[in-house]
Design a protein around this nucleic acid. Structure first.
Length: 293
DNA sequence: CCTATTTGACCAAT
DNA sequence: ATTGGTCAAATAGG
């Protein structure tokens, strides 16, 4: 049976949340633009502000994922349940067809929601992962590591990630995330940890303690979204003079049309922005990184 | 003993 | 047949 498109209300919500996300991304770009490029000088945009923007982006992503999921509900009954049926016996008896494992690989190839790719200087990202596999990848110098969230059993958290050294720069790790952390973000949606005080010019407005893990200088290089939607951490690696383009000079009307275009891109073929076809996007980001040095 | 990691095997997709 | 993702027994470490 062919999949039906999402119902109209869900579509509308999808577009609205997507637009909200893009607005947050724009805000983030503006914040990056405020960062003083001069060496040694403190950034004009408080770090807490960037973190907040990042959280907004993440929230939007999750909302988009949930909406999209509700619109095209299928499969994933196992993913939501968390506990997978174990193989009865291995290598001996009958093969025992396991429907739960069907189409696993296809979902990996971009069918799964919530996928994103990042490049980091370290494997650490603030979450606790449990390694469940390692594989030599054909044509690749470095093995790929497979991790799942430590709390998969406890909270049914479906988050997974694959980590591999980036061949173009082995000091960086290419981290592909699948799913999202339901273990520490669903039940525990953090209250606004702080109030933004725009009148304060100091960078003291940092959140006292975000309940979410933050990327404390890990050197995140690549986000899952195009240039418009950079994560704040990127600023640590990306040359500001090139990463903050003329976007900041656009009028609001120009923004509108731009965002509409962005929406069109995001909703292409029924997939949303957080479904990244790895190769395509990585290629884009490699170009992006060529600016560095 | 308990928990996490390692690693070869299994299996679906290509 | 090959490749890549996952399982799970064996192993290591506390």
């Amino acid at each position: 049976m062919a999949m039906a498109s999402a119902p109209a209300p869900v579509c509308a919500a999808l577009k609205l949340v997507a637009r909200g996300r893009e607005s947050a991304a724009v805000l983030q770009t503006l914040l990056l633009g405020q960062q003083a490029p001069a060496d040694g000088s403190a950034s004009a945009a408080p770090h807490g502000l960037q973190e907040l923007t990042n959280q907004i982006l993440r929230c939007c992503d999750r909302a988009l994922a949930a909406l999209r999921h509700s619109g095209t509900e299928e499969e994933d009954a196992d993913a939501a349940g968390g506990i997978r049926k174990r193989k009865p016996e291995r290598g001996n008896g009958a093969p025992a067809a396991s429907p739960a494992r069907a189409s696993k690989r296809m979902r990996m190839r971009g069918g799964e929601m919530g996928t994103r790719v990042e490049k980091r200087a370290t494997m650490e990202d603030g979450f606790i992962w449990r390694k469940y596999g390692q594989k030599e990848i054909h044509g690749s110098k470095y093995p790929r590591f497979y991790f799942r969230c430590t709390y998969k059993e406890d909270h049914g958290c479906t988050a997974r990630r694959q980590v591999q050294r980036w061949e173009a720069d082995p000091s960086l790790f290419l981290i592909t995330y699948f799913g999202d952390h339901t273990c520490c973000r669903d039940d525990d949606e953090p209250p606004a940890p702080f109030v933004i005080n725009f009148s304060s010019s100091s960078s003291d407005g940092k959140p006292s303690g975000s309940p979410w893990p933050s990327c404390d200088g890990d050197g995140l290089v690549v986000s899952k979204t195009p240039d418009l939607c950079n994560s704040p951490e990127e600023s640590e690696f990306v040359d500001q003079s090139t990463s903050v383009p003329e976007l900041t000079r656009m009028s609001s009307m120009e923004w509108d049309s731009l965002l509409d275009g962005c929406l069109d891109w995001m909703l292409w073929d029924g997939e949303s922005s957080f479904d990244i076809i790895g190769d395509e996007f990585i290629g884009h980001d490699i170009d992006y990184l060529d600016v560095l040095s």
